[in-house]
């Protein structure tokens, strides 16, 4: 039973990546007009909050922020008997004609993002949807890519990538965990 955990990003690295992502969001969208952030529950909420603060520090404007729970849109929901807990979705503004930046911690198979896009479209007709993630670990199962990536992290399928953030885990770090079967 050896569980080898490897820290691949520390607090500083995460912060620098998010700062760059915030600048890239501004650059690509040529400002903040009609821009909204949507954090995907649960991993994307803290990151979306941090991006909102960084953008506010740069431009002096607080962009609207919503929270999306994609559980009810998952494609594996009726395949298991384990029902995930449903979290609250909280989007208090219209998405019609908005530039929506979806925020999540790890981009992996792409299935969560597929579910998130279906959910968003039930809320209105955004002008465009972009995707910002802290980690892209590869292994896509759907034709989906991120517009803004904190770090590309090639990983093997038997590894676990976890993003720990101070708000929920007490520390800022990205860790690769090997499954102990190895």
């Amino acid at each position: 039973m050896k569980n080898k955990n490897r820290v691949v990003m520390d607090a500083e690295a995460i912060d620098r990546s998010l700062t760059r992502v915030a600048y890239e969001i501004l650059e690509k969208n040529k400002g903040l007009d009609d821009l909204v952030l949507i954090g995907i529950r649960t991993g994307g909420i803290c990151l979306a909050n941090r991006l909102q603060r960084k953008i506010a520090a740069m431009e002096g404007i607080e962009v609207p922020l919503g929270i999306l729970d994609v559980t009810l849109y998952r494609d594996d929901l009726l395949r298991t008997n384990k029902k995930p807990r449903i979290g609250k979705t909280d989007i208090t503004f219209s998405l019609d004609d908005k530039k929506v930046v979806l925020v999540d911690d790890v981009l992996f198979t792409g299935r969560t993002i597929r579910a998130a896009m279906d959910a968003l479209i039930d809320f209105g007709r955004p002008r465009l949807i972009q995707l910002a993630v802290l980690i892209d670990r590869g292994h896509r199962e759907l034709p989906i890519r991120a517009d803004f990536v904190g770090k590309n992290l090639p990983s093997s399928l038997w590894e676990d990538v976890s993003v720990n953030l101070t708000e929920k885990d007490g520390v800022d770090e990205v860790v690769i965990e090997m499954d102990s079967e190895e």
């Binding site: 929901l77 009726l78 039930d122 209105g124």
Partner: peptide, 23 residues
């Protein structure tokens, strides 16, 4: 708790999620 999270769906313009499709 689950019901609390479902309240929001009934306030949307499109009051429908695909969860139980085919049931």
């Amino acid at each position: 708790d689950t019901a609390d999270s479902f309240i929001e769906i009934s306030t949307r313009e499109i009051k429908k999620v695909p969860t139980l499709r085919g049931k």
